[in-house]
Design a protein around this nucleic acid. Structure first.
Length: 424
RNA sequence: GGAGAGGUGGCUGAGUGGCCGAAAGCACCGCCUUGCUAAGGCGGCAUGGGGUUAACACUCCAUCGAGGGUUCAAAUCCCUCCCUCUCCGCCA
């Protein structure tokens, strides 16, 4: 959420932000509502002051004069009541409208309409040249007997997967490796709840707007998380932290649930887009400082990159363009890992910085050394998401004989296996 | 699921209708004192919004889990909801 003061003073910047993000928002309506509300508040405050003054004076009166004095306050109260109702009628729509305004993207964010316009920043590693016909990850996994999407579909419908044997160990191993990797980087592991209330969804800016993507448990008014970002960024919601405690660096592993509404017919095959997956997520909460945020952004990007390097996977980093950027982000770097079956890089990581956009919604603040209270800055990035990461892992490391060689760093996490072979 | 207790400032915690935005302690900040010291003294210190100011300051409004209500007046009384704790039941 943007600061209403900022919107007042930077109307054109907000409009430009919306245009760059290819969003349609009504900034003028927000400002009109705000103007109305402020004018009302001045009158309301004055009348309330008057009422408070009168009420206080009644307390000092002798008992026999109170009833008459109280009488005089009553019509003032009636006026107040009308204004209070007006205020309520303005507050709701104003907040709702304010929640829809986009965060202002960094000047570094390239212009563009879709992910096709994202700008490549760097490439690391070279895609392997295969001297045999390659298989896609579905084929590899099925032949090895570690993946079964058919049975998964019978049990749970489309966009589901099941892993068996070494496939199962492989997934667990990668996730655990990612956790250890992040602990080494100084992050605190957290196990967050997987079901959350509306407020964390709104606070992290998934709601309003993303309701269709979330599984809701109607009986309990709880939502299954689509990412651990939601509960983890919300850990300190409503708190005023001490500057000395910052930065907070968390890493969380969780299942993630996404309805993928509107994605019909897109990536229907394989493990790319599914309803339930695992993700290790890194979250940083720190002071309200742009430069510091940018540094953290590079750091969490680097954390993910180093993991990919340990997994010996070629990848590239893109600077996500305006049209592909979400409402809350200031800037986003995606990491795309080489996926041989696609003959292209595919998104596996997403590193975002938000400034105080989420923090303002979450009431996530800190007291600075100067004694002033400010909203924090928040950031997050994937460390690894599975099974999507299995796509490049299986495909890049596949061998002519159908086996898959595991990168050395991963082996201790997969029961010491050097290679995945078909077992029975 | 049943019964009970409670939610107050960064923290602990007092406050059952006007003198309370709120005692006291801790933490923190400033100044002073002191050099034997995990010390002492004085002062400051909730958040948001508005007015005013060059600024310091001053002032008004709201907020004591959330939302309604009673009253001239609510942290304090009533209702609903949320959360925490204790006991019982059930269960992993």
């Amino acid at each position: 959420m943007l600061d209403i003061k900022f919107v007042r003073e930077n109307k054109e910047a907000v409009k430009a932000a919306a245009a760059k993000k290819r969003m349609t928002v009504d900034v003028d309506r927000v400002l009109a509502l705000d103007q109305q509300r402020r004018e009302l508040m001045v009158r309301l405050d004055n009348d309330r002051a008057e009422q408070n003054r009168l009420s206080k004076s009644i307390g000092a009166l002798p008992a026999d004069q109170r009833a008459k004095a109280a009488e005089d306050v009553r019509d003032l109260k009636a006026r107040l009541k009308v204004m209070e109702e007006e205020e309520r009628a303005l507050d709701g729509p104003l907040r709702a409208a304010l929640l829809t305004l986009p965060n202002v993207p960094s000047p570094e964010v390239p212009d563009g309409l879709s992910d096709a316009d994202n700008v490549e920043i760097k490439r690391v590693g070279t895609p392997r040249k295969f001297d045999f016909p390659i298989l896609d990850h579905g084929e590899i996994g099925t032949r090895l007997g570690i993946l079964d999407q058919e049975r998964a579909a019978r049990i749970s419908g489309a966009r589901q997967y099941m892993l068996f044997g070494d496939g199962c160990l492989l997934e667990h191993g990668i996730l655990r490796m990612a956790i250890d990797h992040m602990i080494e980087a100084g992050f605190t592991p957290v196990q967050p709840p997987l079901m959350v209330r509306y407020e964390p969804m709104e606070g992290t800016a998934y709601f309003p707007g993303g309701e269709d993507q979330a599984y809701k448990m109607a009986k309990d008014d709880l939502y299954l998380i689509g990412t651990a970002e939601v509960p983890v960024t919300s850990i300190h919601a409503g708190e005023i932290l001490d500057e000395a405690e910052l930065p907070k660096r968390y890493v969380a592993m969780s299942p993630c649930f996404r309805r993928e509404a509107g994605a019909y017919g897109k990536d229907t095959k394989g493990l790319y887009r599914i309803h339930q997956f695992w993700k290790v997520e890194q979250v940083v909460v720190d002071r309200n400082d742009e430069e510091l945020s940018k540094q953290h952004h590079q750091t969490i990007l680097g954390n993910a990159e180093r993991l990919l390097q340990k997994l010996e996977l070629p990848y590239r980093v893109v600077n996500v363009c305006g049209g592909d950027l979400g409402q809350p982000q200031v800037q986003k770097f995606d990491i795309e890992t080489w996926m041989p079956s696609r003959g292209n890089y595919g998104e596996t990581h997403s590193a975002s910085r938000f400034h105080d956009f989420q923090a303002r919604r979450l009431e996530l603040r800190y007291r600075g050394k100067d004694g002033k209270v400010r909203y924090c800055h928040t950031l997050n990035n994937t460390v690894v998401a599975s099974p999507r990461i299995l796509i490049p892992l299986l495909e890049n490391h596949q061998q002519a004989d159908g086996t898959v060689i595991l990168p050395e760093a991963l082996r201790p996490y997969v029961a010491g296996r050097e290679r995945l072979v078909a077992r029975r």
